[in-house]
Design a protein around this nucleic acid. Structure first.
Lengths: 233, 233
DNA sequence: GTACTCTGGATTGTATACAATCTTAGCTCG
DNA sequence: CGAGCTAAGATTGTATACAATCCAGAGTAC
């Protein structure tokens, strides 16, 4: 069983369906499947050399996570998001992230919040020239937002935001190819942290709103290319 | 197969696991199982006279929906929410519902929004004496909030709010036993609708916040009884 | 009396077989 | 040539068997 898990993903998972989920998510996020690409149980069984039970479970969780869609009696397919749906996800994300900074700004932060201090250091150093690869930047950006959400101490909130951001990663990956946006992102993130520390609620909200909406606009622009490319498969 | 579906739930479902999910949700929401009550696959197979496949799927779905929790190698159990977790759910709900009224107030509503006009009529008539049963009131309250969310036109938002409200239903059911709160709820709902129609964004937000926080406080108080009862099983 | 081991039962994970349903392509008939 | 029908394939849903793992309690050694 360990052998099979290895053969599939590399990492170790408690069961086969978890490793299939991870593998397919990874591939979908990296655009290794064209959108609308069909995934049937039988086909995946062959590819992963496992039976239908774990494959079924994996497809089901991928569907609830929004990575694939179920077409009754026609199997599953990699979900193709249109612009409208992406905007909707960004709207929900905005609502939740505004709530996050509002909570944090209400109670303020101090040197004792080690996670947040670490964020300050990270993004200050990024501003001062230490350049990173695209994928690493996307990871740090995700970490920034998740750390803030974590600091609120609301597990339900954190889980929801994670789920949304994971889906949006599909498109943020594209956007982070543009290196010249790093500086602007640094300034925005540091501004958010500053406002929070100063207990400036409306300032923190505005800073977060700018940050997310800039991301949304960039993605919006990048999507058109991506969709165009997607259709050319 | 139809026979079995009938035997289980009453309604017809496309497959067994869907009907098991519906049945168990119903029972959990109506407190027919004590919290922490263990649900093993084998036991449910017997009770529903089906095999493990649909039962497994059902339990998995219920776990992601937050009705049961999975205990590794010890089966599943009806999830027992503590006060903290309920507060957290209410926080997320508040963030999303504030976003809903903000969206609606920004664009305003008119006579053309038939769903919203219907809400106005419903809650005006409720104010004028037409009394209802507890369960019916809970249903109307849910409908109120879902209709507003639906009017925003953001499917992702609507789905998330539905999921949260479904979980909270477990506790709102308790609260709606108190009839004297109906009048206050009516006033709050009508106030929300009025502010939205008047494009009074901050007024609408405040009205919604009052409505949700009153609900939260009532539930908070009711919970202690409920938990006490739960522990006495 | 305590700690340790070992074993039997309980529980989940996986594979496979079968049944039911839907899709689709080819065929026939008008 | 098109509409409708049919049959084969594709796909999902369900049942069942087997394997692996975990847990708890009995028993034993010290």
């Amino acid at each position: 069983m360990v052998d099979k898990a290895d053969r599939i993903g590399g990492k170790q998972f408690s069961n086969l369906s978890a490793s299939i989920v991870a593998t397919l998510k990874e591939r979908i996020i990296h655009w290794q499947y064209p959108p609308e690409h069909r995934l049937t149980e039988a086909e995946l069984c062959q590819k992963f050399s496992v039976s239908r039970s774990p494959v079924r479970e994996a497809l089901r969780t991928l569907a609830t996570d929004g990575f694939v869609k179920k077409m009754p009696n026609r199997g599953y397919a990699v979900k193709q998001y249109n612009l409208r749906e992406i905007e909707e996800l960004y709207e929900v994300r905005l609502a939740l992230e505004l709530f996050v900074v509002e909570c944090l700004a209400k109670r303020g932060t101090s040197k004792k919040d080690e996670d947040i201090e670490a964020l300050k250091r990270t993004w200050t150093s990024l501003l001062n020239g230490s350049s990173k690869k695209d994928e690493e930047l996307a990871r740090l950006d995700t970490l920034f937002h998740e750390t803030l959400a974590h600091a609120v101490g609301n597990k339900s909130l954190l889980r929801q935001l994670r789920a949304i951001n994971e889906r949006l990663l599909l498109f943020r990956m594209i956007d982070f190819g543009k290196a010249h946006r790093v500086e602007s992102t640094c300034h925005q993130h540091l501004e958010i942290l500053k406002r929070i520390a100063a207990k400036d609620i409306s300032g923190a909200r505005k800073a977060m709103q700018r940050n997310i909406e800039e991301g949304r606009n960039n993605v919006h622009a990048a999507i058109k290319d991506a969709l165009a490319r997607a259709y050319s498969f």
